[in-house]
Nucleic acid binder design. Sequence first.
DNA 1: ATGGCCACCGAGGGTGGA
Length: 256
Amino acid sequence: MKIATWNVNSVNVRLPNVLKYLKDYKPDVLCLQELKCTEDKYPTASFEGEGYSSIQACQKTYNGVSIISNIKPKDIELNPVNMSPDEVRSISATYDKVRVINFYVVNGQSIGSEKYEHKLKWLDKARIYIDQQLKLHKNLILVGDFNIVPNESDAHNFSAEDILCSDKERMALNSLVDLGLNDCFRGEEGFSPYTWWDYRAGAFHRDVGYRIDLLLASNGLFKKVKSYSVHRETRHKSWCPDQPKTSDHAPVMVTF
DNA sequence: ATGGCCACCGAGGGTGGA
């Protein structure tokens, strides 16, 4: 099974890119974040045209998450982790006995801001949910845009004074992992680990990036991981001529 | 080179992203 995660920064603007990704990489399960559209604008028919079905949790303007798959989902939960019903950042379903949980974690803006405190509270709720899910599902994978770098080596410019890198954020991520999850990225030597590069200042070109898009597998599932890849070629303008404006994130895929 | 913000809403700049 191939499972991928991708923050697309608007599913409708990025539709040509997502359709090309389905054609070229054929994921069985593709988790998207930052849909930025309401349910009525979600491009279900376009995915069906490629042989995929979708479940989605949408909201106007911001956030929104979905799971596209060629396997029928069971036990669907829309926005199980929420501080309020109009903040939509989570979706879960079971695909062939694998529990897939897709998160778009709060960005946090800056350390000490209200949004930073909100991020930590959201992660606390997430921990309670994941603890419960791990008790129910032996084969579980938690994926998404975490907006947190796990380690110093996961940021080109690491500073614990910066958002995405602070001790409290990384401790909150560790408290999720400590429930019984394993990072599918194993820190292979010789290639860049990053999954996000700022649009500004040629960050992608200079590889000034961060690894904030993660796939975290339960012990049972982690043993079966065969490969891990970051599809950074999707950041090239030439990769999808129909929509040369790319997401600032690259998709990340694991195969079992 | 793989290139120097982008998308949202709404009607123009303000806001959020990370």
